[in-house]
Design a protein around this nucleic acid. Structure first.
Lengths: 113, 113
DNA sequence: CAGAATCCCTATTGATACTG
DNA sequence: CAGTATCAATAGGGATTCTG
């Protein structure tokens, strides 16, 4: 294999790097359901064992990578809405494939091979 | 959100957990190209900075999760072949979606948005 | 409300050496 | 050839505290 880092060249390695994080897929899915969603609203939809710190970090990562858009309203109390960017919306195709396969895999885990 | 662990229930969280590992997507892709591939052959196709230790671990993980099949031939020198399992083959749909999106994302990174 | 800063802990990686 | 064992380095996640 070449000495080059594959990130930015191989679509699989690049995708995987973009999607690091325990919850990124699920976050992307939740964001795909609505045009925009607020921070706390999103947190309530996440598993309980995920703290706001972690959610905040993951959102920032996804934002830095260009997958999501953060819109801040200048008001008190603060209001911030997250939504999918253009390239983020294109990711929905992957989400659909992943949803279908994930369910098949869950069936497989449950022994319905 | 419920107290339940989402692994085994939510297709997104389950998929993401299955696909942890820096190289799992790429390994699955390489395995999808051929009916079977030997360890060293596979390693040569991986980036140089991935050691055989890491490859070995990732393969074992994927095998434990049922995505790939390890076939060992009783001979000297040893010969081991890896291939996709049934559920692993079904994953190819995801790989295709991921390939397309990954390339779009690479374009996006290069500023052709 | 929506974070940032900090610390700690664990999981993953990579490097190296050894084996049947 | 195809691993395993071990260790050091790192990155990621969670808990807690503080802020405008």
């Amino acid at each position: 294999m070449s000495k080059k880092e594959l990130f930015g060249f191989c679509p699989y390695v690049t995708s995987q790097k973009v999607l690091t994080g325990k919850w990124s897929m699920y976050i992307m899915y939740l964001l795909s359901l609505e045009p925009a969603i607020r921070f706390n609203e999103l947190q309530r939809k996440m598993p309980e064992n995920m703290t706001h710190t972690t959610l905040s970090r993951q959102l920032k990562m996804l934002e830095d990578q260009g997958l999501i858009i953060r819109k801040e309203y200048s008001q008190i109390p603060p209001k911030v809405e997250y939504s999918l960017s253009e390239i983020g919306k294109k990711f929905e195709v992957v989400l659909q494939a992943l949803c279908q396969w994930g369910n098949e895999y869950i069936d497989y885990l449950n022994g319905e091979s």
